[in-house]
Amino acid sequence: MTTDTKPSEAEATPQPYVDLTDKDSAGTRWVRRIAVTSIVVFIGLPMVTLIVWSFAFRWNFPNMLPTEWGGKAWAYVADDSSRVFEGLWNSTKLAFLVTLMAIIVGLPASRALGQHEFRGKSTIEWLLMMPIIVPALVATMGIHQIFIRLRLTETLFGVALVHLIPAIPYFVLVMASVFANYGTALEETARTLGANKIRVFRYVTFPAISSGLLVASMFTFLISWGQYVTTLLIGGGSFVTLPLVLFPFLSGANHANAAAISLVFVAPAVIVLIMTSRQLGRDSSVMGGFGKI
């Protein structure tokens, strides 16, 4: 018999919501054109300006392009006295350390929140969200006092600990959503098939959460990467990261140097985005996590 009477069988024909052969109305196309143009202009213009400025030697008002070009700003960046490379190295070490710590601390917690029901769950959720809801300034200043006693100021570890505070909520938001979306059925199946806990994680859990973990790690990395005031306070000015190197130039007159350092500051971040861009757009549970406070 060839008849198929399974009641849950759904129509298998692809049904694209907006097919290219369907003509959109003129209004829709205009709205779309305006939106895309504003994305290109508003998002692209500041970045393009930075690139052009970093190669400008002389660029006075009202010229639309530099009247003299040159690599002076980049030479300055490469010079040890600018401390750009020291900042880059410190920022990188720091961001990786914070990401690692966030994974170790945050992964089990995300799993508990995403997949288990227990008493006091919403309290724990709120508690873990506190650092992104309560302005962190007072806590940072308080921690500064504590760290002075513990001799953690001006150390990599001390700064990393403080960066970990805002990193945890973001990490947990994303990963709890990923865990909740993926559920426990697959793992339970693997267990009944005789896989031990380590193998279940290696062959079932990890592949399922890896793209979400990549995005969560990216957010954690970037949170640490962009921190200014916490590093300034806990690092005490002697632990120099890129934002600390950049900051004085932003209110100064040497726009070319500011632009070049800004670009050094943004480059690794953009590489991270290119690596994770597909995940950001594809798995709706990843970004959707931020919509679930």
């Binding site: 008849t3 198929d4 069988e9 759904a10 129509e11 298998a12 024909t13 049904q15 097919d19 052969t21 369907d22 003509k23």
Partner: peptide, 21 residues
């Protein structure tokens, strides 16, 4: 008809959610 035979596509064209080719 069985899955994928075009019956839902036909219905969507009657509603106007899908334009006929």
């Amino acid at each position: 008809g069985p899955s994928g035979c075009g019956k839902t596509t036909t219905l969507r064209m009657i509603t106007g959610l899908l334009q006929p080719s």
